[in-house]
C-alpha cells in the first residue's frame, strides 16, 4: 500500500469535522487522490478504502459512477467537450473534430507524448455560453475553432 502525500492527509483532516462519518468523505477523498495521482487506479481505490476504513467495493461503485474520476491515466491537459444539446447545436461537434485532427487522436484517447486527452462529457451546466470545453479544471466558454487553436498553441 502506497500512502498518500501530505496534501491529501491535511485536506482530509481539515474536512473530517464536516462529515458525519468517514464514508461520507469518499467524494472529497477521491478528488484529493485524483489531484495527487492524476487518475484513480485500482490500487488508489484500495488506498482510499484503507484510509477511510470502508470496503473497496464502496469506493469502486462511486469512482465508476462519476465520469469526473479518471479510471485510466489522462494527458497533462484533458479537453472535456460537452456534447449535449445546447453545445451540440452551437457547434461542439465541429470543435471535437478539429481537436481530434489537431492532436491526431480519437475521442477518448491520449496523445503518445501524454500531453492531451480528448473526452466527451455530459452537460457542464453552462448552456448559456455554449459551446463549452472544460480543460482540466477551467471552463472555456463560447468556444470556437480559433480559440481552440490558440489554447492548444499556448499549451504546447
Amino acid at each position: 500500500m502506497a500512502s498518500f502525500g501530505k496534501e491529501f492527509t491535511t485536506e482530509m483532516e481539515r474536512i473530517e469535522r464536516f462529515y458525519p462519518n468517514k464514508q461520507a468523505m469518499l467524494l472529497p477523498a477521491l478528488h484529493a487522490a485524483q489531484a495527487e495521482r492524476g487518475w484513480i487506479s485500482d490500487s488508489t481505490m484500495q488506498d482510499i478504502a484503507d484510509y477511510l476504513s470502508i470496503p473497496k467495493t464502496r469506493v469502486k461503485e462511486v469512482a465508476t459512477f462519476y465520469h469526473m474520476f479518471h479510471l485510466k491515466p489522462v494527458g497533462k491537459y484533458n479537453l472535456q467537450f460537452c456534447n449535449n444539446i445546447a453545445c451540440w447545436l452551437r457547434g461542439s461537434e465541429e470543435l471535437i473534430h478539429h481537436a481530434e485532427k489537431k492532436c491526431g487522436i480519437q475521442m477518448g484517447e491520449t496523445t503518445p507524448d501524454g500531453n492531451f486527452t480528448i473526452s466527451e462529457v455530459e452537460c457542464l451546466g453552462s448552456c448559456g455560453t455554449a459551446p463549452v470545453c472544460q480543460i482540466n479544471d477551467d471552463y472555456h466558454e463560447n468556444f470556437d475553432v480559433q480559440a481552440l487553436d490558440k489554447v492548444l498553441g499556448e499549451m504546447k
Partner: peptide, 19 residues
C-alpha cells in the same frame, strides 16, 4: 458482506463483484 456493486452508470451499469 458488501461484495456486489453496481459498476458504471446508466446504460453501462453492470452488477459485479469487486475484481
Amino acid at each position: 458482506i458488501h461484495e456486489m456493486i453496481a459498476e458504471q452508470r446508466g446504460n453501462n451499469t453492470a452488477i459485479v463483484t469487486i475484481d
